[in-house]
């Protein structure tokens, strides 16, 4: 935990979110908020609605009921592209990198929204475009250094081992310099060593850049270690919300995870 860090105001506020697909009710009346600079975890058994929640924040799904307030203003139904413009970045559970491109190019795409030169200026390498490309290249190099993937800059991402691909996925999201970073199971499928690395990176991002992070994770140990607050979903409903210590002692959560005899 970033020792002594200050948690700020509410940046994201979800009120009474309900989402269903046909007859399947993925989320039912879920309410929670995310404060600036915190690491907020969403946990729950398989099919609890964690990914759906993340996709609502990201604008992939639009809830039938409830409101989303972002940075103090009520947000209308945005699509993923608009969410990105508003400073929301994400990583994917099943890595969704651009396989045909190098690590560097993948991360550079994260700068796309910030690059302003016109098409012709870029194609003909006008000085202004050249300067801009260099500036953004520098920002990307910082991200590469930060995540310690210098050696793989030019490698096509498809050839990297799984753990490194996850890291590139995070790097691309970081290159956007997001206000809010959504991580969909960042440690899924990793070995212990890779998990430790990823934990360190997540905490460093949170600490050094002050990025607010919402993450979904299965590994309870990891979640309890790195989160400031945790929300627990089960069958689309919120059954717990609080600090890791409070969640550990929450009977409803224990029942959901361990099962309960009725």
């Amino acid at each position: 935990m970033g020792g002594g860090k200050t948690i700020g105001d509410v940046v994201l506020d979800l009120q009474g979110i309900s989402l269903s697909f046909g007859g399947v009710r993925a989320l039912q009346d879920v309410t929670f908020d995310v404060r600036e600079h915190e690491v907020r975890a969403i946990i729950g058994p398989n099919g609890a609605g964690k990914s759906s929640m993340l996709n609502v924040i990201n604008g992939v799904y639009h809830p039938q009921q409830g409101t989303v307030s972002y940075l103090g203003a009520k947000r209308h139904d945005v699509n993923t592209h608009e969410a990105a413009v508003q400073g929301i970045a994400r990583t994917f559970q099943n890595i969704a990198l651009f396989k045909g491109m190098s690590v560097l190019d993948n991360i550079m795409t994260g700068r796309n929204l910030r690059m302003k030169s016109g098409l012709l200026a870029q194609a003909f390498r006008l000085p202004s475009a050249e300067r801009e490309e260099l500036e953004h290249r520098e920002a990307v190099e910082q991200v590469i250094d930060f995540l310690e993937i210098q050696a793989h800059r030019k490698t096509p991402v498809g050839r990297l081992p799984y753990g490194l691909q996850k890291r590139v996925d995070l790097a691309r999201a970081l290159a956007m310099e997001p206000k809010l970073l959504l991580l969909d199971e960042p440690m899924a499928g990793m070995n212990v060593e890779e998990k430790q690395d990823m934990c360190r990176f997540i905490l460093d991002v949170n600490d050094q850049f002050g990025t607010t992070i919402v993450l979904i994770e299965h590994d309870m140990g990891v979640v309890m270690d790195i989160s400031d607050r945790v929300i627990v979903l089960d069958y689309g409903k919120k059954i717990g919300d609080g600090t890791p210590d409070e969640i550990r002692g929450n009977q409803a959560v224990i029942d959901a995870y361990l099962g309960v005899s009725h």
Binding site: A89, L97, F98, T109, N112
Partner: peptide
């Protein structure tokens, strides 16, 4: 090239 590789990921970074 990004869109060619992955629609959803491309949208998520604002393309």
């Amino acid at each position: 090239r990004a869109v060619a590789d992955d629609h959803l990921a491309a949208q998520s970074i604002g393309i």
